[in-house]
């Protein structure tokens, strides 16, 4: 393969109004059909996060399911050395931070079409990718770097899903250790906060938001609801329902209204059924 040579021979890159460059991609050299990748430099105002430096990151849309991160890395290294590849099922900010999880505990990778964030070593590679001509397709599976799909891939996945129990136990243990530590730290922090609220030598108490013992604001939604209902019930209990004659008359009126309403409802149901010919027994 000599992409550089072809590049000269071909026409201009295809750039569509959205600012995206269209690259074509085919699975193997002799494939008949091509997918279209849409690439653009990564540009987001709000995000200044670590993983995606603005000048060196390429944003790719429509990455086919058989392109894993490794495959994408290899595909794009023709434009310059790739630092990292991140595949996501939809565009968005990078993953929230949390304790590092082993692969067995992470959510399964999406197998559909992805969007990719490719971070190059240098920003020149981004523009190189963007100026790649439309009619020179990227090829996923070559003889040098075969990509497994179908039965081969499934067998491989099945084989790789095995893990030694003791290794798994280690993972669990180390996670739990970390968890306990975090929890302890948290407890420590809370204890310190509580300590701050103790009397100091001079007898002063630093007053912050409510402390133990004081009647605090209910802090769950359910509790909020409960208090509200309690109030309502109290109000209701105080009311007398059958005291005045008009109240008595009202209940009777309500009863007849109920009957009428039911009658009307039934009538409507019947009308509906009649329209649907539901009364023809045969």
């Amino acid at each position: 393969m000599a992409p550089s040579k072809k590049k000269h021979a071909s026409s201009k890159p295809c750039i569509i109004p959205g600012g995206f460059t269209v690259l074509s991609l085919q699975f193997s050299p002799d494939s008949a059909a091509q997918h279209q990748l849409f690439v653009k430099e990564h540009k987001v105002r709000a995000e200044k996060s670590s993983g995606r430096p603005l000048d060196r990151t390429l944003f790719v849309l429509n990455v086919p399911p058989y392109c894993s991160e490794a495959v994408v890395k290899k595909l794009f290294s023709q434009f310059g050395s790739v630092q990292s590849v991140e595949l996501r099922d939809h565009p968005g900010s990078s993953k929230e931070s949390g304790p590092k999880l082993s692969k067995f505990f992470r959510a399964a990778d999406k197998k559909g079409f992805n969007v990719g964030y490719i971070v190059f070593q240098s920003s020149a590679s981004v523009s190189a990718a963007k100026s790649h001509p439309h009619d020179v397709p990227l090829v996923v599976c070559t003889e040098l770097h075969p990509v497994r799909t179908g039965v081969q891939k499934w067998i491989q996945e099945y084989t790789q899903s095995f893990v030694q129990p003791d290794k798994l136990q280690q993972i669990v243990d180390s996670f739990m250790e970390g968890y306990d530590k975090r929890k302890e730290e948290e407890a420590e922090r809370q204890r310190k906060e509580a300590e701050q609220q103790q009397e100091d030598e001079e007898g002063w108490v630093k007053v912050t938001r409510g402390h133990k013992g004081a009647k605090a604001r209910p802090h769950t939604e359910a509790a909020n609801q409960r208090t509200l209902q309690k109030e309502m019930r109290k109000k209701k209990r105080k009311e007398l329902m059958n005291f005045y004659t008009w109240q008595h008359r009202n209940t009777q009126k309500e009863h007849i209204a109920d009957l009428r309403k039911k009658f009307e409802e039934d009538k409507q149901k019947i009308a509906l059924l009649r329209v649907q010919r539901k009364f023809r027994p045969y």
Partner: peptide
């Protein structure tokens, strides 16, 4: 992209 999709059916179910 129907043409590519049909080919994907074949590729993804290789074998």
């Amino acid at each position: 992209n129907v043409k590519a999709i049909l080919e994907d059916f074949q590729i993804m179910g290789e074998g």
